[in-house]
Structures are given as C-alpha cells and as structure tokens.
C-alpha cells in the first residue's frame, strides 16, 4: 500500500498542473466568445493562410 504515498503526491502535482492549464485557458480568452464559433470556423472552409485568428502564446497582461 505504500505506493499511495508516491501516487497521491503525483496526483496532487497533476491537479496543480490542470488548474494552471485551466487558468491559462480562461485568461487567454478561449471561453469568452461563443464556444460553437471556433468549431464553425473549421467548417467555413478556408485555407490556413486565411485564418487570421492567432492565439497569443502567453496570457494577456
């Protein structure tokens, strides 16, 4: 059973990582608009060069 002494802290680290990822995603504005819109964008059928949306690599200050 001593394996839980390793696995649970690992789980905690993973949790912390997920929270950080969530905060990044929310702060970068991914959930600001309508969620369907990004999906629809693909169906609009334009080539990559036309896509003008660029996600900023880091959260806005």
């Amino acid at each position: 059973m001593s394996i839980v002494f390793l696995l649970i802290p690992l789980g905690i680290v993973l949790m912390a990582a997920s929270v950080v990822a969530l905060f990044w995603a929310v702060d970068s504005g991914q959930y600001d608009g309508e969620l369907e819109q990004e999906g629809r964008r693909i169906l609009d059928g334009e080539s990559d060069e036309d896509v003008t949306t660029r996600w900023s690599p880091r959260p806005p200050t």
Partner: peptide, 14 residues
C-alpha cells in the same frame, strides 16, 4: 488576436 462574433455582433481584439 481578433475574434468577431456574428450573432452577438461583438468584436474582441488584443
């Protein structure tokens, strides 16, 4: 970054 939402007529720009 720019997103324009047709149904809410909102544009958000960074």
């Amino acid at each position: 970054r720019v997103t324009v939402n047709a149904s809410t007529a909102q544009a958000s720009v960074e």
